[in-house]
Design a protein around this nucleic acid. Sequence first.
DNA 1: CTGAAAGCGCTAACAT
DNA 2: ATGTTAGCGCTTTCAG
Lengths: 333, 333
Amino acid sequence: MARINEVADRAGVSTATVSRALNGKGTVDSELVARVVAAAAELGYRPNGPARNLRRQETTVLALIISDVENPFFTAISRGVEDVAHAAGYSVVLCNSDDDPDKERAYVGVALREQVAGVLLSPTGRTSGHELLRGDGTPVVALDRPLPGATGDAVLVDTRPAARQATLHLVEQGYRRVGCITGPSGISTAEARLAGYRDGLRAAKLRSSASLVRRCDFKTSGARQAARSLLGQPDPPDALLVANNAIAIGALEALAESGLRPGADVGLVSFDDAPWAKLLDPPLSVVAQPAYDMGTVGAQLLLGRIGGERLEATTTTLSAHLVERGSSSPRPR
Amino acid sequence: MARINEVADRAGVSTATVSRALNGKGTVDSELVARVVAAAAELGYRPNGPARNLRRQETTVLALIISDVENPFFTAISRGVEDVAHAAGYSVVLCNSDDDPDKERAYVGVALREQVAGVLLSPTGRTSGHELLRGDGTPVVALDRPLPGATGDAVLVDTRPAARQATLHLVEQGYRRVGCITGPSGISTAEARLAGYRDGLRAAKLRSSASLVRRCDFKTSGARQAARSLLGQPDPPDALLVANNAIAIGALEALAESGLRPGADVGLVSFDDAPWAKLLDPPLSVVAQPAYDMGTVGAQLLLGRIGGERLEATTTTLSAHLVERGSSSPRPR
DNA sequence: CTGAAAGCGCTAACAT
DNA sequence: ATGTTAGCGCTTTCAG
């Protein structure tokens, strides 16, 4: 790989001039610029990133650490992040923590070590990598879930009222024993959705019962188990509010196994919309979260911080909204 | 952020010793190691990546550049890559080229500039960033689609015979006018699936006709259009082979619009399995590709190259297999 | 076993 | 407007 001094030699100038010419800094005679550019092109010169980063003490890359690449909710976020980062001249690297605190910590570590300009993090839970962020000057914004240490901005969704509304919707449709499958305890979104579900029950003057609630990780296989357990009870629920896409799939599988029909035998509302949700029969009612927007505002916030705006830590809360489809049609009597 | 010399001062040793102690290189008195480790911990020292990379002339991160983060096929690949990379002590950063050659080139550029140890690339098409890879010593492996320049290894899927088999399957199920929606021309997987489809028609002694073929990008909206156009013809197809997941969704939407039932009015087989495919009514028949495995073998190949194994460029072809479900059930007569 | 010192490739003062 | 030079923070010969 050609170095800057080779380019300088070939163009018959100093390395400083090459640097200036290639970076558009300072003022360089246009004829020299042309020579430098030509020399660089001929040699296939590409500046050495680490050297530049070391010297400049900054990079132009953002790290986005999410807990599950296979979850459309997070990939939608990443699209949002990328669109604004890209427009501002930043690259974004996506790291998949796989909901594993160790991996998350590891990725936060490499991000910091490599001196990324900022990090966007959807924390896996209680013991996330945020400790590393402490003290370090690197700007962070939390996505979807707040950062325990309260360092940096956060972009959240008002998931609790949305869960309440969805629960109420099921009740209005005639379902009387609404159950809930949510995520692991300690994860804020899982807790918020459960709390909202209870809010809804309360508002409907329905008793909530532990036998109607199950937890699982946000994965399909655990969800299928949880749904089976819920449905296999003596007095099973006649409707379900479930906390994400993957859980919805598990629940639908369990319903199918039992020969139960969504939107008739069992009302169903899931968090997170998906392209296939309306293809199901009946189509799946969902609480749609503004994932893409979370990405864009998160990235804007982060870029603002990087730009040096010394504002207080902010929390932006976006709204989710209920999309009523067939899986929550009125309960036949 | 604490520097190595601060750690050295605090531990009362030289920076060289700190470096050796922290990296487990050379032999350092165990008591000194303890002092260094303690000092580092107290200061919250984390080595500066760019400085280290500059000095070492190598990094321990892999770049994985895929064309669509929202496509489960590619996220499954990324899981495979990550699992093996992680086990070998490498981090992987995911870059989303969005099937845009410019973005792809840009990402290849940053990857090379930042001196990643290697890159895994699913090239967007003809004019991909592979030109940059030329000459540069950085190892590359192509995933899913071959690299035009034939630099480096490739991990592909025998998608053509699979398409042939799927087409034949539809014919055997009694469908007589099998159509095909594939990806943009010039993209090898799109071409291979189309070729396989034609192979299948030929093997079944059926005439292939341009009026039964449509192309669109690998996105849902274009696919919906394409399917409408196919279905709206005077003599429409009675079955469809479609080239990926997103296209399948578009096709299913178009079928629903026209009141056509998959697996009865119109047989349907799609490339790529998905968690929701079996939840549809009828469940979706698919050609399942070994995406996760592509990731693992790709990463292994890459690590091998990085390790300096100076082998010839290899091409590994994995097998896809047909999963027959309800959307290709025998055509009622 | 440990320290001194050179230098990775680049950019930014500073000098001309 | 261009060149000279001093590092950025680290690792690694090379001495001791």
